[in-house]
Design a protein around this nucleic acid. Structure first.
Ligand SMILES: [Zn+2]
Ligand SMILES: [Zn+2]
Length: 851
DNA sequence: AGCACGCCGACT
DNA sequence: GTCGGCGTGCTC
């Protein structure tokens, strides 16, 4: 029989899989997605069997798999997810190990999981060796001095056992411990086992519930008292359980009733209380019982969309749809009812929402409808909580998953629905490490799982919109809103003609509107762009802006609250210097923070207005939720804030929304600047209005004629899209062209530039090959070259964190040549050179921003 | 990413 | 003399 080989993804930052042999004694080859323990550079690492052919290597000796950590037939990652990881690694040019790590909770992968235990023979050998020191004899076969140190460390540990990582951490260090452990194990002087974090499966906990026995009956009190006895504590405990109405985990009783077990005994015996081992509650929020919510009667639009989506679900084939519904058209109810349908068919669902929209209100909405079948994956989970959630999802106990970007990898079995809400949101693109787009990964996953994908938005990404328009995906429109309230009336105010106050950008028109609103007893929100209002320190002698020592960005941001300067690019924080660093003489002056300036001006100019401010300084910790709650309770009239207010929070009392500089983002040299501006304005404008009264929106801008602004004011997405798509088509930008941005960085400018040129040569050669093949096809003479290279050139901010950054853009007319070219480029990426001249190169496929 | 191995300064 | 600082090279 030929050697059975598997490729294993390991949590190391190396761009390849590792080939291992399956021991001959194993009856079968572990399946893709199964976790395996493998020897790797003297360590014992947990990896995942890849859904890919093992590469045959020349020379390097192939090691044996040590152990399969998952039960047969139940790999940690379903084969479907393993395939998805392979696709992501290939498409986004990312190391497989890193991709598989995205799909597993941190505790299931990573570090060395082995434990070493002193064996009987080891203890004897150690004792014998110690004898020898006193009475030298022939020491053949005795452990070496280094080995003795390891054995001694084990002997000193409780139960003669230590985690390998503790042995590594031991001070003073034992040189070559890992090799020594291997040697000792081979001589059977120690035995090796491993921690299977989560290997035991999902954790359970005792839960208690008040039964119906003797509940509420008027005659019961007498009998009840007999069972309870005279203990006030026992009575309180019973009351608590009765009030909870459902299963209460033991963990929640331990606090208020330290002796809860004893207290419960007679109650359990009498049948007043039932006990059951149930899955641990995922987090404190999840335990709260909510008023169950019933499906609402759909509007005509909702019903039509649902009918189509249910048809797709019934067909059991992959189908993708854009659910294009104006703000307030009730997209969430469509998701809820579609998911209910998927559940009725025994399937599961994933709902992806922008990070900022993953609020308790949103998860409550799903929990109220689907109860304990929902898992919410939010960023606040501890590693252990994340593992609990992951295991419960994997075993099918929580078939509905709500989460941000990374939830696209949730191991939901029998996935039937994937929803990407606010699909245009930039947070779905991971901007570090594996630079994947959760929206696009969701589509690929849905296709592979034959699931229904729904992309919801009022202002879809132009890629999505074009796919819908051209019929690549279905286009479901919802134009009516359940409320009778008309869309807000938007007024544009030109900053060019209205002469704003230079400090605050407030125009007379904006002030008047705010005065009117407050006088009418209503609330207003004023938005400003954080970056446009960033405070800087300027020298009163030479006029220089204080800038970061490690970056070439023009200025650092001054945070008044903590009296600190911060660099937006590298995160460097420093105290303001006494004197100007440039001339050494001038004093550094600053204004108030943007939000603060506006807050002060409004408090002065709007009579009787109570003004709240929300920015980085006031939103730290609990500040954000506290301020929002205050405003919602109508304890203030005006809320001044940055874009963090633009979604996820409802303000029912707001009738006026003011935007200080609507076209701020348009100045950036970025292909998506117009799109982002339009989306932001539309989103922000949607905040105005109450009950059935329309709100008012005031947008101040320098260029009010710009279509991104003008069409937003008219709530006309399609006109905006038509205009923007024309521009994109002309420039061969997405969705009509496909981009990959190559970034090169390193400490030395010359080395970075040279590396960039080298890579550019590789890309040009590959592009030329693509062009030659393309030219052979008939009718292609006039077409533009299928792949173009723009650059290399220095990035907009050339120096960040003492590293020089260069970039170049690959633009292709279609996907296949781009993917072919990236595969050619792949082996030349990563680190090169050493020391001072070390450079790093990577690719961002489908970049969001070209800066 | 770790970690071994190797080569130089500041401690017992 | 050893400890440990990081520079460099390797991991199936
Ligand atoms: Zn100066
Ligand atoms: Zn900086």
């Amino acid at each position: 029989m030929s050697e059975r080989l598997v490729s294993v993804a390991l949590p190391v930052a190396l761009d390849r899989g590792f080939t291992y042999a399956v021991p001959a004694s194993w009856p079968s080859v572990p399946e893709p997605g199964a976790r395996v323990l493998v020897p790797f550079a003297n360590r014992g690492l947990v990896g995942v069997v890849r859904a890919a052919q093992p590469e045959r290597l020349n020379g390097a000796r192939i090691k044996l798999l040590e152990e399969v950590l998952d039960p047969p037939g139940a790999p940690s990652l379903t084969p479907e997810l393993a395939r998805l990881c392979e696709w992501v690694a290939d498409y986004y040019v990312a190391p497989v190990g890193e991709v598989y790590r995205l799909a597993l909770p941190g505790l299931l992968t990573g570090h060395d999981v082995r434990r070493v235990m002193l064996s009987e023979a080891g203890a004897q050998a150690l004792a014998a060796a110690r004898e020898v020191v006193l009475q030298p004899v022939d020491d053949a076969g005795l452990p070496t001095a280094a080995e003795q140190r390891v054995l001694a460390a084990l002997a000193a540990a409780p139960r003669g056992e230590l985690a390998v990582e503790r042995l590594i951490d031991l001070r003073p260090r034992i040189p070559g411990v890992l090799r020594l452990i291997g040697d000792l194990a081979a001589k059977e002087l120690c035995t090796i086992s491993w921690d299977e974090a989560g290997g035991e499966g999902a954790r359970v906990e005792a839960h208690y519930r008040r039964t119906d026995y003797l509940r509420g009956a008027a005659t019961a009190e007498e009998t009840l008292r007999e069972h309870i006895g005279r203990s006030k504590q026992r009575r309180a405990l019973l009351d608590l359980l009765e009030g909870a109405g459902s299963w209460v985990p033991a963990g929640e009783l331990r606090g208020p009733f330290p002796g809860y077990k004893k207290l419960l005994e007679p109650l359990l015996a009498a049948g007043l209380v039932a006990v059951e081992e149930r899955l641990r509650a995922l987090d404190p929020f999840a335990a709260e019982t909510l008023e169950p919510s019933l499906p609402q009667t759909p509007t005509a639009d909702q019903a039509a969309a649902l009918a189509t989506l249910r048809g797709d679900l019934e067909a059991g084939k992959f189908a993708a749809s854009l659910l294009h519904g104006v703000t307030g058209s009730g997209k969430t109810e469509v998701y809820l009812q579609l998911i209910a349908d998927a559940r009725a068919r025994g399937g599961g669902a994933i709902v992806l929402v922008p990070e900022i929209a993953l609020t308790p209100q949103l998860s409550d909405r799903f929990r109220a409808r689907f109860g304990e079948t929902v898992a919410v994956l939010h960023s606040g989970l501890t590693p252990r909580q994340r593992l609990d959630a992951w295991q419960q999802i994997r075993m099918g106990a929580r078939p509905i998953v709500i989460g941000a970007r990374s939830a696209v990898f949730a191991p939901v079995p029998d996935l039937k629905v994937i929803v990407v809400d606010e699909e245009h949101d930039a947070s779905f693109k991971q901007e570090e490490g594996v630079r994947y787009s959760a929206r696009d990964v969701a589509l690929v996953r849905a296709r592979d799982a034959s699931a229904v994908a729904v992309l919801g938005s009022a202002t879809p990404a132009l890629e999505t919109y074009e796919s819908a328009r051209s019929g690549k995906i279905r286009w479901l429109r919802m134009t009516t809103r359940p409320t009778t309230r008309p869309l807000p009336e938007v007024e544009l105010i030109s900053l060019a003609t209205h002469r704003p106050d230079p400090e605050t950008l407030l125009t007379g028109r904006m002030r008047t509107a705010l005065v009117e609103t407050v006088a009418a007893g209503e609330q207003a929100i004023v938005f400003l762009n954080r970056r446009g209002f960033a405070t800087t320190l300027i020298c009163d002698r030479c006029g220089a802006l204080h800038h970061c020592p490690d970056c070439s960005a023009p200025a650092m941001t001054y945070h008044l609250g903590r009296n600190r300067l911060m660099c937006h690019w590298c995160g460097f924080i420093e105290a303001p210097p006494e004197r100007c660093v440039e001339c050494g003489e001038g004093e550094l002056l600053h204004g108030n923070a943007g939000t603060e300036r506006v807050e002060l001006a409004l408090a002065k100019d709007v009579p009787g207005a109570r003004v709240l401010r929300l920015d980085r300084d006031t939103s730290r910790g609990k500040g954000l939720l506290e301020t929002l709650a205050q405003f919602r309770r109508r304890e203030a009239d005006i809320l001044v804030g940055t874009q963090m207010l633009s979604k996820g929070h409802d303000f029912p009392g707001v009738t006026l929304v003011g935007i200080l500089q609507g076209d701020h983002g348009l100045g950036l040299p970025d292909i998506r600047a117009s799109e982002r501006t339009f989306q932001l304005l539309t989103q922000v404008a949607g905040r105005a209005g109450r009950g059935d009264r329309p709100g008012r929106v005031l947008i101040q801008a320098y260029g009010i004629k710009n279509p991104a602004i003008a069409f937003a004011a008219e709530h006309d997405f399609e006109a905006f899209a038509a205009w923007e798509l024309d521009k994109r088509r002309e420039l061969h930008n997405p969705p009509f062209g496909h981009l990959a941005l190559v970034r090169i960085s390193g400490p030395d400018q010359v080395a970075v530039q040279r590396r960039a040129e080298e890579l550019a040569a590789v890309i040009r050669a590959a592009a030329e090959e693509v062009r030659r093949k393309h030219a052979e096809e008939p009718g292609s003479a006039e077409a533009p070259p299928p792949v173009q290279l723009l650059g290399p050139k220095a990035s907009l901010i050339e120096r960040v964190n003492r590293r020089v950054r260069w970039q170049m853009l690959i633009r292709a007319s279609s996907r296949p040549p781009l993917r072919w070219l990236l595969r050619q480029l792949r082996p030349r990426l990563g680190d090169a050179g050493s020391g001072e001249f070390k450079t790093m190169a990577n690719v961002d496929v489908d970049p969001q921003s070209l800066i």
